Amino acid sequence: MTDLTDASWLLAYITLDTTGWPGWLAATWPQILKWTLVLISVALIWFIASLVKFAVQFAGRRLTPKDKEFEGSVWDFSASIARVFAFILMSPLPLGLAGFDWRTLIETRGPGAFSAVIIFVLAILIANSIAKALRRFGEKAHSRAGADDTLIAFSASLIKYIIFAVAIVLALVQLGFPAASLAAVLGAAGLAIGLALQDTLKSVAAGVMLALFRPFRIGDFVTLAGLDGEITNITPFTTSLKQIDNKIVSVTNDKVWGSPLINHTLQPYRRLDMYFSVSYDDDLDHALDVLKNAADGHPNVVSYMNIWTGVHSLDDWSVKLRLRAWTATVDFVQVRADINKAVKQAFDREGIIIPYPHAVEYQIEGKPKKLREGALYDDKPRAYEPPDDEGGD
């Protein structure tokens, strides 16, 4: 029976005349051949294990309902585990070709390795289950009682990472690492990782501050790091927000905490500040009444809060009026659009002119000349631009 612990049975099938080779090459040729076969066997085993994973994924995608996501599902997790186990089951081939006594390795290290794999599998299942259960609890509490689920979502992510860290330590102990030595190694590694990942640790610290002080909640519409969007998730490392065009953006927590943050939906009411321009020839009192009536006539404008109108500024080519009114935060965008439409229609009915910059051209010696922009409804030029060929010394 062929023994995989020795590669000589394969070398017997590969006969090359090495009499004319250099001495060092002829002496090292058996080792070169052996390790080449080891690498080929590892690549072959990885290919077969990947085929196993693909087969499990293919079956899982067929059996997963269309209304559920495949990524992160039990089938997706099972596919990765199947590839790992397939690789482990076929690992005696490269170990035997390399000259290791794989039977002894399995007897001595097999139970520990098997326990480590079981610990990893259980840790992934438990961590994902706890995280999903906490998120579902937070969503139900938010929908039923209006509770803030931001801290719950953050805690779910943090607990998942803690479980993974504990599982790694327990798996290393099962593989034979002494607990005392492992603690020293982890301490030194933690210091090195902390120095190398300072920005990442800043994100974790900032994530803790965001979870504790909660300047925003999941579902709030905010402006942070120069981006607008609805908060969808917060983890120890990043904050995710969905923009108006349904794009998901992830921002590291240190940038969220260190930049100005505007929460548009934290307060139940928002004030509309709207500006409208009218001509200098229009009756300003009448125009202000039209603005106030347009806001007062909207059903979603809060009637018991003061509606204010006034002259904001006297510009070069128009008089700018200002309207202030209050509405519920959820109705802000729609109310602003409705008032813009109502004011434009009311100005048209009342004959109030909304001016705009324009230019007046007139003819001098056969050459058209243009006035500066902003001359409004005048027959007389306000500024004269001399021709290039005119102007005395």
Rank of each mutant, 00 (worst) to 15 (best):
R136Y: 12
L151Q: 15
P111I: 00
S73D: 04
I119L: 01
A55L: 14
K53I: 08
P94H: 06
I119R: 03
W102E: 06
L122R: 05
T150P: 02
D67M: 11
F120V: 04
L122Q: 00
F137P: 06
K132R: 12
F70E: 07
R61G: 11
I130Q: 05
H142G: 09
Q57W: 12
G146Y: 00
E107H: 12
L105P: 02
R83C: 10
L134F: 04
P92V: 09
I118C: 13
V117N: 05
F77L: 13
L51M: 15
L95Y: 07
I124E: 02
G138M: 01
S78T: 06
L95F: 08
P65T: 10
I124T: 05
G146K: 06
L105W: 05
S78V: 03
A147V: 04
W102L: 02
P92E: 04
L134Y: 00
K66D: 15
A79F: 04
F137R: 09
R136W: 14
T150G: 06
I126H: 04
V56W: 02
A116H: 01
K66W: 12
A133L: 07
K53Y: 11
A123Y: 03
L105N: 10
I88Y: 04
R135L: 00
A133I: 05
T64F: 05
S91P: 02
D76A: 04
D76E: 05
S91G: 06
R135W: 04
V84I: 15
T64K: 02
P65W: 13
F87G: 09
R109N: 15
E107A: 15
F100P: 03
T108L: 15
E69I: 09
E139H: 05
F137M: 09
N128C: 08
F87I: 14
A141T: 05
W75V: 01
P94M: 06
F54K: 15
L125Y: 07
L63M: 14
A79W: 03
R144G: 03
V74W: 14
P65I: 10
A131I: 14
A145Q: 11
R136D: 13
R135E: 00
R144K: 10
K68N: 10
M90K: 13
Q57A: 13
F58Q: 15
L125P: 03
T64S: 09
I130N: 01
G112D: 08
S91F: 09
R62N: 10
F120C: 03
F114N: 07
G99V: 02
A113C: 13
W75T: 03
L63N: 13
A59D: 12
D76L: 00
G112W: 04
P65D: 13
T150I: 07
S129W: 10
F47L: 15
